[in-house]
């Protein structure tokens, strides 16, 4: 195989994105929220469709209809949980109050890995590159194991284990992502992330200036440890993002948003995406033409909708 450098690139346009968000907003508000799943689908279709790797766009195939069905199911789950919680709060019986509150808390704790699992299956199945669909093959039971071990140790170590938890989760998820017959791998270590997070103290000591190095480190940790495995041969992504670039992009973005009283937000979002994606390349031998479709379709968007409702910022 020949040595090729494959670049990612983001083509989004602030004006077009503003138009999409405006139409989404208007339709969502006049339908009293019912249009929201379609708005979300359109948003993702646009963002994915403007993202290119090695000359070919990503495609998002999720539809408003799928997301609407998921939205309703997710809504039912959340309403039931809150229903239990509120009737427990209003109950005169103190055992029921305690049990109801516990069911509510544990329900949410269970819901998060469930939502991540379902969300990944859906989001991956509905994303393709060069006509080849992604897929997520993780097992729910294994994810639960990692999740509860992580939550437990993070609590008893007062948050210190959080870095390892986050890396374990990422390793598991990424190692279960497929693009046809291509696999992925995450080689980062919890210890490294811990050091990066520990250095957040420097942000205070430097009166904020270190934040740009902190963000760069996070970006590099996420990207430079990401591997594509083709025919058992790993190829590494590399980020060329610099603290200076983060600094200029952020300052200009803040100015754009403030000077336009918020109307310029879509431009700021697009500029951010461009900054991240235009700095990613795949370093090494990767053959984009030998990938074969392997993944099955998965159309249940409940997990994806739950993630969006629980407002868990998951970076796909």
């Amino acid at each position: 195989m020949e040595q090729v450098t494959n670049q990612t690139k983001f083509y989004g346009d602030g004006g077009k994105y503003l138009g999409i968000l405006a139409v989404n907003f208007i339709l969502t508000i006049i339908t009293l929220g019912l249009y929201y799943p379609w708005a979300r689908a359109k948003n993702l279709q646009y963002i994915y469709g403007e993202t290119e790797f090695s000359g070919n766009r990503l495609m998002f195939h999720g539809t408003g209809k799928e997301m609407f069905k998921g939205f309703i199911k997710a809504m039912v789950v959340i309403v039931i949980l809150y229903g239990i919680y509120f009737s427990a709060l209003r109950s005169a019986d103190s055992t029921f109050r305690l049990v109801g509150t516990l069911v509510f808390l544990i329900g949410f704790l269970l819901l998060i890995p469930l939502a991540i699992h379902g969300g990944l299956r859906y989001r991956m199945s509905r994303t393709s590159w060069k006509g080849i669909h992604f897929g997520y093959r993780g097992k729910l039971g294994e994810l639960f194991g990692i999740w509860f071990k992580g939550v437990f140790f993070t609590i008893i170590t007062f948050g210190i284990y959080g870095s390892w938890f986050s890396v374990n989760l990422r390793k598991y998820i990424i190692s279960n992502i497929r693009l046809g017959n291509v696999k992925f791998r995450f080689d980062g270590e919890g210890g490294d992330l811990f050091i990066i997070n520990l250095k957040f103290i420097l942000v205070y000591l430097s009166l904020g200036i270190y934040i740009f190095w902190f963000l760069r480190n996070h970006n590099h940790f996420a990207i430079n440890n990401l591997k594509v495995v083709q025919d058992d041969f790993p190829v590494t992504f590399r980020s060329t993002l610099t603290p200076g670039e983060i600094f200029t992009t952020s300052i200009v973005n803040v100015l754009i948003v403030i000077c336009t009283l918020g109307i310029g937000l879509p431009w700021a979002i697009i500029r951010n995406m461009r900054m991240v994606f235009n700095n990613i390349e795949l370093d090494g031998a990767f053959n984009p033409d030998s990938i074969v479709q392997t993944e099955e379709s998965y159309a249940d968007a409940t997990g994806d909708d739950l993630l969006s409702m629980l407002d868990i910022g998951f970076d796909f």
């Binding site: 083509y11 346009d13 077009k16 469709g49 403007e50 766009r57 495609m59 195939h61 393709s128 006509g131 080849i132 669909h133 479709q293 379709s297």
Partner: peptide, 15 residues
């Protein structure tokens, strides 16, 4: 309209 590139998708999964 995606910056001069048109991607037309057809049919059922896999598209």
């Amino acid at each position: 309209d995606s910056h001069g590139k048109v991607l037309l998708k057809y049919g059922e999964y896999p598209f």
